[in-house]
């Protein structure tokens, strides 16, 4: 039983191919990261999942239903925070939170007060007077206040200050403990790294990688800084080495995962004084996939 099951999902905006055979599977109780740069297709995927727009082809299942046809029934089981939060300027934050909560049903005022306190939101201000960060808080609280099975969060921390980001992470971890499913779209990598069990990377409407962080680490480069007793030479001739800078007895480079062994063997001949190896961060992972050298296929409808 999966919460979200997407297969070969395709969506065109006119002639522009927004999603190209996207696959995604989210299991119950999982916090799933969905990352990619702006315009990659994250929001389009989420909007199809929410029944706001139609798919052109492919399969998509949400719980036991179709997100387009069973929209209202499915929405009772989930909550959504849009990436671009626009609220009714004449309503106060408190009114919006209450209203959206009551519409979904099962509204718990105590939970509401708790969240207001956590996020330090003044519910008496009109939405038109809130800053971007405060509008984001209203949307977040409106979603978190509901006791549902699935939370879909589209770049939820934009505009939040670092302190509030911590509060947000605590709340997601609580959801995880309670066995809820979370689909978190983001381009803030540390956030995804800190929260998510699995992730998919999307670029130009295509999923280019899916897996756990362990899986993805396997194909990424490790950064190495080395100090030796002798001058380091010949590194540039080895396979799998990138971004090399050598300064006599000091060298910095990154190396493909499968080449680490041979590179270390080569380095020992210079007498290694110290060696610092950093595992790939999500940032590096991204730079690799979105750097110039990566050439994905772009398909335009004939």
């Amino acid at each position: 039983m999966t919460v979200i099951e997407i297969e070969k999902l395709t969506k065109y905006y006119g002639k522009f191919l927004a999603l190209n055979e996207v696959d995604l599977e989210v299991k119950p109780g999982e916090v799933y990261g969905f990352i990619g740069p702006n315009g990659a297709g994250k929001t389009t995927t989420l909007r199809i999942l929410l029944g706001l727009i139609r798919k052109d082809s492919g399969e998509i299942r949400l719980f036991d239903g179709d997100p387009w046809h069973d929209a209202v029934r499915l929405h009772r089981r989930m909550a959504y925070v849009p990436g671009d939060v626009n609220l009714w300027p004449s309503l106060t934050g408190g009114e919006v939170i209450d209203m959206l909560g009551k519409l979904r049903g099962d509204f718990d005022p105590e939970r509401r007060d708790e969240l207001l306190e956590h996020f330090r939101l003044d519910p008496k201000k009109k939405c038109g007077a809130y800053s971007t960060g405060n509008r984001q808080k209203v949307a977040l609280i409106s979603a978190l206040v509901s006791d549902v099975e699935l939370y879909i969060l589209d770049e939820p921390t934009i505009g939040l200050d670092p302190l509030m980001e911590v509060v947000f992470r605590e709340n997601v971890n609580e959801l995880k403990k309670a066995g809820k499913t979370v689909l978190l779209s983001s381009h803030i990598l540390s956030e995804v790294e800190a929260l998510c069990d699995r992730l998919s990377i999307i670029r130009d409407g295509q999923i280019i990688e899916t897996g756990t962080f362990e899986d993805l680490r396997y194909i990424t480069r490790t950064s190495i800084t080395v100090d030796a007793y002798k001058s380091i030479t010949g590194l540039e001739n080895l396979e799998g080495i990138h971004n090399l800078t050598v300064n006599d007895k000091h060298a910095r480079f990154s190396v493909d995962g499968e080449k680490i062994d041979s590179v270390l063997k080569y380095l020992t001949q210079f007498g290694v004084k110290s060696l610092l190896s950093t595992p790939p961060t999500l940032e590096e992972l991204f730079i690799r996939y979105y750097s110039e050298e990566y050439t994905g296929k772009k398909i335009v409808r004939e």
Partner: peptide, 26 residues
């Protein structure tokens, strides 16, 4: 000073038609 409003939604706002009233009444 900024004008503030109620911290809680009145019972009107618990339905879509109530919200529409809020949007249209002005």
């Amino acid at each position: 000073p900024q004008r503030t409003g109620p911290a809680r939604a009145s019972s009107t706002l618990s339905s879509v038609i109530g919200l529409a009233w809020r949007i249209h009444r002005k």
